[in-house]
Design a protein around this nucleic acid. Sequence first.
DNA 1: TGCTTGCCTTGATCCAGATCAATGCCGGGC
DNA 2: GCCCGGCATTGATCTGGATCAAGGCAAGCA
Lengths: 233, 233
Amino acid sequence: MITFAQAFELFASRVLPASLTDAAHLRFRTLATLRQLARDTSLEIAEEGQQIVFVARGATKLVAHASQSRDQIVAFHFPGDVFTVPEPDNYSYSLSALRDSDILTFASADFLALAAGEAGVLRYLLENTTLSLRRCREKTIALGRKNARERLAVFLLAMAERIGVEQDGRIALDLPMSRRDIAESLGLTIETVSRQLTKLKDERVIETLGRSGIVLLKPSLLRGRAGFLREAA
Amino acid sequence: MITFAQAFELFASRVLPASLTDAAHLRFRTLATLRQLARDTSLEIAEEGQQIVFVARGATKLVAHASQSRDQIVAFHFPGDVFTVPEPDNYSYSLSALRDSDILTFASADFLALAAGEAGVLRYLLENTTLSLRRCREKTIALGRKNARERLAVFLLAMAERIGVEQDGRIALDLPMSRRDIAESLGLTIETVSRQLTKLKDERVIETLGRSGIVLLKPSLLRGRAGFLREAA
DNA sequence: TGCTTGCCTTGATCCAGATCAATGCCGGGC
DNA sequence: GCCCGGCATTGATCTGGATCAAGGCAAGCA
């Protein structure tokens, strides 16, 4: 649990240019709302319109709700991430905490109006949105053209890049999300996720420690089965 | 076929604020490159890094190439659209013309450097990127959680919104893309696309005219089978 | 430290959509 | 207005992953 001041300071140091006047700084501060989400609780984004979100602590998932309780996880987010939560269109969206999390939210319209004069802030937002878009496109490729084994490989490599701890060639992961979350992110079922992980374990590509620990023993091998353009060794 | 001057004028009227000085206007103009792509030809985005693209005329597809000639169409674009083509990462990307097209391209880095002082331009880019992201997320949901019939419905409705011509409750489409393109966009095979279209025809939801013409007879019926959150009548 | 609850794993079966294989037909060229 | 090539449709079969159905086991709690 962190305070609003701490969370905003994290946000400001990352997003707001050092050159920003104190007055402008304060105006951004007025727009921010701190939401402290306990594990497994979620934020419904309904009436408030598009939101800009900054993750100060924890880990979250952005979930899209289609009909018949078919949910698709659109993205996972970790501390430091900045992203947009769309307002409901054909689907409704919610943001859930995978662990206890502290996040700052801004009404998008207000934030952009304030940032209109601050090219640095806009540029930062643009870069982050472009990054989200790149990740989303890669996910599209995985969901459209890859089989279960490849999707798992892609997922593990993406997590390795974002929260992995490397040690002499191995990469250790402490996954905050459940098998169900992984399945909902990859367009698979929990059973298939489980079976593919077991296979990777049998093939000595990964090792598991309890429910959340996974060690990538041979990241290069995993890259080879991710179905990327350039096959790795 | 249109001239560079015409294409840039279209771009400027849409993207550059009226208040922009002539000097700045000219600098943007210097960065633009006109590419005239004949139907079925494509632009490889390789050495040049991330590009910002404006479609002045025609229709294009953004294709991601994974291994083994498995291609995934990431997005379709129509006149007036502004979007980014990522530089190659795990995949390579190319932009192909569905019809004869005229597009303007800008090296992203140069463009952003120039736009750094122009909050209006940045804001416009940000809004377009956010729109691309929203569309990409909706596609993720379709690919992750919907069956073939629903994907076709979603596709037809999306096309109706972008290039449809409404006339007394019906929406006429003249699709510039082939069945193969539709399949590669929806993560299906051409055979499945064809069968689903035939089914919709049998059910009197659509009518086809030749290879490219489709009329949505009952858009609301189609919405009902798109698997959106709020089922339409 | 044992219990209990909710994940996770494993196994058996099924089916939507892929794949394989013809055939049909649109539209461009002459 | 006919011919041709490539796209589209239709049919038969196959299969990866979904679904249905038990167990196993980790983590929190008493």
